[in-house]
């Protein structure tokens, strides 16, 4: 069965450490060009069509800023 996923990032709390990017198996995430209030480039879904909602990114996120969603299609 195919699944489709998405993430949301609490951008104000994200520190742009990139650990999620390194652990995303589908190349979904990248750092934004914009910065948050603290001056960090925050993570966002650059390629949302790739996301499977596997939760790897949220699992390794040190700041617990990622929420993961998944639907079966």
């Amino acid at each position: 069965m195919a699944v489709k996923g998405a993430i949301t990032v609490d951008t104000e709390k994200c520190k742009g450490c990139s650990v999620c990017i390194a652990n995303c198996p589908t190349g979904t995430i990248a750092l934004s060009k914009q910065v948050n209030g603290k001056g960090y480039n925050y993570a966002y879904m650059e390629n949302p069509e790739n996301c499977t909602g596997c939760t790897n990114c949220a699992t390794v996120c040190p700041d617990a800023v990622i929420t993961v969603y998944r639907v079966k299609i």
Binding site: G5, G53, T55, A58, T59, A64, V65, I66, T67, V68, Y69, R70, V71
Partner: peptide, 8 residues
Amino acid sequence: ENVVYSKT
């Protein structure tokens, strides 16, 4: 309803 991971 689709959340599979969120901050505890």
